[in-house]
Nucleic acid binder design. Structure first.
Lengths: 192, 192
DNA sequence: ATTGAAACGGAGGGTTGCCTCCGCCACAGT
DNA sequence: ACTGTGGCGGAGGCAACCCTCCGTTTCAAT
């Protein structure tokens, strides 16, 4: 077992089938599931997912034996992207890097809806996702703290849940969501 | 049409039946619905609500012809309490009054879960609730702004949604929720 | 081109929830 | 106490969804 920085992608990608038609269906299912979960939460209808993907219900169950498998696959994919994004912000100033990364949540519709449940999920994959997100984000937070730009009396977990809560909420438009996120992040900045 | 400060209670209370057994069932249904909605969101099973209330499904539908009627009744009740609470905090300092009122959200499990949907709902009752909440809360916010204790570059609606998002999120415990809420509210305080 | 292995789709049986309808029962007014 | 009006509960028809199973189709290796 080699130490992977973000082991999540390995777990998930290994299940992608080899045959051409099968791989196409697998991708279509993931895309359809992402859509459906974003719209209806993790309780979305699996038959609806299959319909959206233009695929028989049997095909869905062959690729993802349970709802949990499907959900975790979608979720893990987004978490993985998010983790990789952390590498792209290391060039920025400490506070800016942290803020950029946190704002990235907003782009992940499934994660938004799921994060509240997932932060408490106890399956192997959810735990791996959590670990990955911490591995990716906590250093950014600590760097900002070290630079005197983020307050020291809260934990990274507090911060993550705060942002998750805000991004999971409906706003009038994206501008409002952004405004509110900025306000909340101002509360995280070190008092001057 | 007399101008009511909080017209919501009128709309809802008027539907309570007069006969003793009927009134008891009505109350039991509301209590059971509050519980069920808090647990499973506004999609909770109505048959489950009837079961919890120890009442036949027919009785539920007689009192609340649609799921929406039931949900709105529960929601309106909590909003109404919240509005009345605003009167109790007027003795406090401007910022403290606002903060106390906002923290009151945390106690309303249904409101918490529903607020995201309800803030965009367009039924008569949802609109009335929104109006009531604004009538109750906005003065507290404006008073804090007037006293130089709250920043002026955000709207009351922004604030409400921010708090709603945070309180609707799962936290490890109440202490964490409170901590996070404090951080976010620090962002609302006027910069010194 | 052939062919066997693998993937495909959807029929179908079971479950759960929605809502209506109606025979029975309890309350409140006399 | 009597009575009839209104409330009561839940059976039952309908729809959506879950998941399994299997006859048919498609792929890709030879």
């Amino acid at each position: 077992m080699t130490a992977q920085p973000f082991p999540v992608s390995e777990i998930v990608a290994s299940r992608r089938p080899h045959r051409k038609d099968a791989a196409r269906n697998y991708d279509a299912l993931l895309a359809a599931a992402r859509e459906a979960f974003a719209e209806h939460g993790s309780e979305a209808s699996l038959e609806d997912v299959a319909r959206r993907a233009g695929v028989g219900i049997g095909t869905l169950y062959r690729n993802f034996p349970t709802r949990r498998h499907l959900f975790e696959s979608v979720y893990a994919g987004e978490v993985n992207d998010l983790c990789r994004f952390a590498e792209e912000v290391t060039g920025q100033e400490p506070w800016e890097a942290l803020a950029s990364w946190l704002r990235r949540f907003v782009d992940y519709t499934v994660t938004k809806r799921a994060i509240r449940e997932a932060l408490d999920g106890e399956s192997e994959i959810f735990l791996a996702c959590r670990e990955s997100m911490y591995a990716a984000g906590a250093p950014l937070f600590e760097r900002a703290q070290g630079a005197g730009q983020a307050r020291r009396d809260i934990a990274f977990d507090d911060l993550l849940r705060m942002v998750a809560g805000i991004t999971a909420t409906n706003f009038l438009d994206d501008a409002q969501r952004d405004r509110v996120l900025s306000v909340a992040l101002d509360g995280v900045r070190a008092a001057r």
